[in-house]
Design a protein around this nucleic acid. Structure first.
Ligand code: FES
Ligand code: FES
Lengths: 152, 152
DNA sequence: CAAAAAAAAGATATTTTTATCTTGAATTAT
DNA sequence: ATAATTCAAGATAAAAATATCTTTTTTTTG
């Protein structure tokens, strides 16, 4: 449903949201290691996300990527739009050209509620809120295998 | 989540389940037109599905593809396994290597119930039952755009 | 200022998915 | 039998997604 690129992007931004700020930037190398994603590919992605104001960056020593307060006001949905485009998500689970109640495919009534739920979660919460919920519930919500992002 | 190939396969088999039997076979050309899928690609798929006993076929004039009673005892899940493999479906929505309650990603508790629901629907019902439910509810459950498969 | 660090940009490569084409084999109707 | 029809099989092609490499630019630190 989401491309690898998009998954990497979401994970990166959630990671940056938890661990970075203006005074604590993080380089691609570190991010790629933490999230176990291909480094140069992630670099390209972050480049694109930066150009589109979803993440921030500075060059030079102690430079790297981080999320500004403005960046944190975006939603996960903004990331999806940026990388995969909107269509990807509105598509029918079985590949019909339109997914709508008026013309449901055989699994529409199973798939549609899920899509709506994910969609509203992605669209209605800011990155900031999404992140604080992760932190507040104090669950081990890892971004890569095992508990890499365990908040202790 | 599912590949195009797999979507084509599922739609084809549901189509054949509704419209074909031993005495009424349907050619690739017709199927591809009805489902609006690329014809030679679908031919390859049907070939594979036939080899793997998920559909039946005969050559020659009035030949074509159809579902035998045995074919109808398979599940949608069998199709998915055949084309995309099992893994595809067990994957984490954000791309972690494992999707499990013990190590949930930030959207796990939204995605997991959906996956379980689809999975059980796909796995526990035979094609035959799936199809008769489509017919019985008498809904316009089309397999391609608009109401191509409207059961009147 | 010079050197090092790090992202930006652009080019290239690999892999996977999707799609097509060509030839061969089986079946049926005439 | 023969010709027509339709699937089978294998080779090939095109497109998209994923991944890497090289060079340039910016920034910071010493
Ligand atoms: S029409 Fe297929 S998922 Fe909605
Ligand atoms: S861990 Fe991500 S969907 Fe289950």
């Amino acid at each position: 449903m989401l491309s690898n690129a998009c998954k990497y992007a979401i994970r990166s931004i959630l990671y940056l949201s938890i661990y970075s700020d203006k005074t604590n930037k993080i380089g691609v190398k570190k991010i790629a290691e933490e999230l176990e994603t291909p480094q140069p590919f992630l670099a390209k992605l972050l480049q694109q996300l930066t150009k589109n104001k979803l993440v921030s960056s500075t060059k030079g020593p102690n430079g790297g990527f981080y999320l500004s307060d403005e960046n944190r006001e975006n939603s996960i949905w903004d990331i999806v739009e940026n990388i995969d485009g909107v269509k990807k998500f509105n598509q029918c689970f079985l590949g019909l050209s339109k997914c709508e109640d008026a013309n449901p495919c055989p699994v529409h009534y199973i798939a549609a509620p899920f899509k709506n739920k994910i969609l509203s979660d992605f669209r209605d919460k800011s990155i900031a809120r999404f992140t604080s919920e992760i932190i507040d519930t104090n669950k081990v919500l890892s971004l890569k295998d095992y508990d890499a992002l365990k908040l202790d």
